[in-house]
Nucleic acid binder design. Structure first.
Lengths: 275, 275
DNA sequence: AAACCAAGTTTCACTATTTGGAACTAAATG
DNA sequence: CATTTAGTTCCAAATAGTGAAACTTGGTTT
């Protein structure tokens, strides 16, 4: 997966439009028409029209002075709805607050999105934060605590897919850089119920993470507590594991009640019907 | 603008797809196919295909158990890019932190998006009041401090459009419920340089707001400090105005340097004509 | 148990939209 | 002033979207 042009998305016009959005977002800065043209397979006129329409719709914003495109504010509006409805964040919030307060360390809540880690909420060691200052950011799954905790509890098909889509880039000399090594670690994680990140992504950064599961073992996300080797060692960090695990379980239970009822039990009719 | 079905969007397939996204988001809860079908003009099969494709793309998420759709996590990813690049939030962050610390009150940063207030960042009061606002959330412009502060400094065309698109719903008995009343207030705001919200949106909630402007008077957004009538009165709140104004100016200056260079000063010719 | 109903899904002939090569214009450069 | 580069418009060909209707599924009524 080198730097070649993105393959055109599968489904129709809408898929292509989403592709364009991703392309623009990928630059992480306002971007000119020509730059986008290079990196896309679309012919000039086609790309041009896409940018026009998306800008019209507020999905992109256009700066006429600089002639640059950037992701638009309509996305922020929509994402607010997504964050509220489809993420674990609203449910997890009070638990994260408590965990953050108790540990005094950085706490993350993440979900898996196209085999990547998507951070949906966070508490800093220091100050209270708001929404997507950090939430919305993505990171690699194979070398983070939350990523591995989540992958370990995927069903077989999803796991195979996820594992095969990792880049295995070596960030530090402790990074797991092969599918085999990752699978071995995932087995261990599944067995003991939590994952560790021992400076696999950033030097000096260690963390412990637990998956958030429904009672039916459906994996919903993961939470982690992160520390730095300067201030603590693994023994201190692992002491938090039982606490982290309990919080993860609470979030899972809460989520199940609220959003992933998985009931099906015998209750049957959530829809009662007159006449 | 009552509860009738949304008019079909202008531009093509993509516009319609965005419409569907808005429709789903508007429910503020996971929603079933049939519910969406009622509120949209699309025929069954068409809407169905849209939902399929959008779900495929991760713009929506589908819960197979409940058969419900909700805005998808891909939006959160994209919005992160939008927030980082197209909003004032990254620039304003340190200033908001300081302002929040100094005042101890709730602080908002907002931008105008389709004539509505879009909150892009927020700091909670030391003693938080339960209140309607979070990053990504939208609210009315005609009855909020930030909304009025922004509208007052729009150019004439934009102002006319914005003013005409307000709903003028009466939230409290102090809400301005006519275009004339709003325009009068906007004149006053323009003159004194800041806006107030005197329980016009929520009873007991008052605020002062200043616009964020470039040196060329281009309106970029607004910031506000909010309080509750239980703990303070307007005199106390208005004492913060100079401080708020200074922060708004700092943000404006910073933003101009970073993102809205507006240099080009006298270059003038948006249309210069050869020969 | 058979008939019924409602919600969701698939089909397919019809057509409106998208497509993209190429021509065009505007602005930047030598 | 000639030339290049960047952005915009055109239009015939082809693809992709449309939506009425038929079908499937799962649950409820007679």
């Amino acid at each position: 997966m080198g730097g070649d042009k993105t393959a055109v998305a599968g489904d129709g016009t809408i898929g292509k439009a989403c592709d364009v959005l991703d392309q623009v977002a990928a630059f992480e800065r306002p971007v000119r028409f020509a730059e986008l043209l290079d990196r896309s397979n679309f012919p000039k006129a086609t790309l041009y029209r896409f940018l026009q329409v998306l800008t019209n719709q507020g999905m992109l914003s256009y700066d006429p002075e600089r002639q640059t495109y950037a992701p638009g504010m309509r996305l922020v509006r929509l994402a607010h709805a997504a964050w509220t409805q489809s993420s674990l964040a609203p449910i997890a919030r009070p638990f994260l607050d408590a965990l953050s307060k108790d540990t005094g360390e950085t706490v993350h809540l993440a979900q898996l999105d196209s085999s990547q880690v998507l951070y949906v909420d966070k508490r800093n060691a220091a100050q209270p934060i708001e929404m997507y200052s950090q939430a919305g950011k993505v990171g690699p799954a194979y070398c983070t605590g939350v990523g591995k905790a989540m992958m370990a509890f995927l069903d077989e098909d999803s796991l195979n897919e996820a594992v095969s889509q990792q880049s295995y880039h070596r960030f530090t000399d402790k990074t797991l850089t092969s599918e085999a090594a990752l699978r071995a670690d995932l087995d261990l994680i599944r067995q003991r119920g939590y994952a560790i990140d021992d400076e696999e992504h950033e030097p000096g950064i260690i963390c412990v993470a637990c998956p958030v599961l429904t009672s039916g073992s459906r994996m919903l996300g993961a939470i982690s507590v992160t520390g730095s080797t300067e201030r603590m060692d693994f023994n201190q960090l692992e002491a938090w594991v039982p606490r982290v695990r309990r919080v993860a379980e609470q979030i899972g239970a809460e989520a199940q009640a609220w959003r992933f009822p998985e009931t099906r039990a015998k209750v049957s009719n959530d829809r009662m019907q007159a006449t």
